[in-house]
Design a protein around this nucleic acid. Structure first.
Lengths: 154, 154
DNA sequence: CTTGAAATTATAATCCT
DNA sequence: AGGATTATAATTTCAAG
């Protein structure tokens, strides 16, 4: 799908706040509210906007800690990797996960209540996945940035 | 703020889709649309819901590549660390950034068009920050999960 | 192919229980 | 507290540039 300058303006706006009124969006884009709405609908239908979500405060729901875990599997075998990916998808504590090049194979971003819960998590998760050769945990001391907003040039 | 079972149900719903109608939310929560609306407003005002955002497809806006960079600074000095954090916040290509314990000090998640852009980015960014002692790049081959949804037990 | 106006539908505010 | 009613705003539909 082709995106023009107005589309990019709208995307930049809604990826920071998707509850802007159509009137506010009209101001931003220099267009009528209706036209903005039509464009956003098109962007949603075309999958340019993949989802619209609320960001919940980790602290407010009792999960103030974030851990990063880099994982190396025993062997670079497609079936082992796929099985691990499936397990990751099914595990709610894992918020984000990337399959990467380099020393380790995966990087997981894991939400936990406290250290005890993390220990229990790793024990369970790594026990269930005997293909994990090595893992390295980093405790997140500060989330400097935790958005999924892309830099869209207008 | 105290959260009851209904609040947690609503949070679980909207953190995957915040465009559900109040009627749909009513179904989910077993409550009237009005009551759901009131609760969500309270959750937003109290900061339990930090933001409402649209997730944009990286490929659709010409940024299909994702890189992870782990960064080690020269010295563990507060002012150096803070300066680096500020720079991270100002850099739009950096989508997420964590200050972590362990071998390296930071993990950056960086959105780029292609390898050439990443090379240009690192050259510029690391040149401007002479405090960077070492960096290690991982190319993301697959984003298995890329949400910010927390596991909220109901 | 994009805009603006009218009709439908959803949301926000007020009041009542 | 939750639920129903009215007022306001957002979507969809449709006609026109």
């Amino acid at each position: 799908m082709e995106l023009d300058r107005v589309d990019r303006k709208l995307l930049n706006a809604v990826q920071h706040n998707n509850r802007l009124t159509t009137e506010e969006l009209g101001e931003i884009a220099g267009l009528s509210p209706t036209a903005c709405q039509r464009r956003l609908k098109r962007l949603r239908d075309a999958g340019v906007i993949e989802a619209d979500v609320a960001i919940v405060s980790p602290g407010a729901v009792g999960r103030p800690m974030l851990m990063l875990a880099s994982i190396t599997l025993e062997r670079d075998r497609a079936d082992i990797i796929d099985r691990f990916k499936q397990a990751v998808r099914r595990t709610p504590e894992i918020m984000s996960a990337y399959y990467v090049t380099g020393e380790s194979d995966f990087l997981l971003i894991i939400s936990v209540r406290d250290m005890a819960e993390y220990e229990a998590f790793t024990r369970r998760f790594f026990h269930e996945h005997s293909d994990v050769k090595a893992s390295k945990t980093m405790v997140v001391m500060d989330r400097i940035k935790a958005s999924l907003a892309l830099p869209i040039e207008e």
